[in-house]
């Protein structure tokens, strides 16, 4: 099975760890997240009849991406960039963040994720997405689990296409 590194990043409190915990069975204590700012876990994703082993790095949210040690990003084949659709502050710098990440990891695939969709009406959500300076690839709720599996299988497909 092919293995790939995927990073989960975005502002503080947008729901990265919640998505991570929804997706994988958690083996390491959250102590790692608070002390070293990252936690690694693994999930095998099935795409059609292929399988892919994803090493998911949950990176503790910082307000700015350039505060995160670069080494946490390096070697990633995939990026999941999460923002909180209910808090505009978390996507104010989205363009700057993504420019930074794509420059750092030019060959990686990116998923832009609008999380906490359970907190918004469809109308509010449409409004938020229309204002976003780029396309949001998928909207999720770590609380209800909506689209979480879908997010990872879409990413798995993209990664396998690149392999």
């Amino acid at each position: 099975m092919i293995s790939k590194k995927v990073i989960l990043t975005g502002n503080f409190g947008v729901g990265k760890t919640s998505l991570f915990n929804r997706f994988v069975y958690d083996r390491f204590s959250d102590k790692y997240l608070t002390t070293i700012g990252v936690k690694v876990n693994k999930k095998v994703i099935g795409v059609d009849d292929e399988e892919l082993s994803v090493l998911l790095w949950d990176i503790a949210g910082e307000v700015s991406q350039d505060k995160v040690p670069i080494s946490y990003f390096l070697g990633a084949a995939g990026i999941i960039y999460v923002f909180d659709m209910s808090r505009p502050l978390t996507f104010k710098e989205i363009k700057k963040d993504l420019d930074y990440l794509t420059e750092l990891l030019p060959d990686s695939v990116i998923k832009i994720v609008g999380n906490k969709k359970d907190l918004l009406t469809q109308e509010e959500m449409n409004h938020v997405l229309a204002e976003l300076p780029m396309e949001c690839n998928i909207t999720t709720s770590a609380k209800t689990g909506e689209n979480v599996e879908e997010l990872f299988s879409q990413l798995g497909r993209l990664l396998l296409e690149r392999a």
Partner: peptide, 12 residues
């Protein structure tokens, strides 16, 4: 795999 990842994270 996970241990290798965490080891790398800690090392970094």
């Amino acid at each position: 795999d996970v241990i290798a990842g965490m080891l790398t994270a800690i090392k970094s």
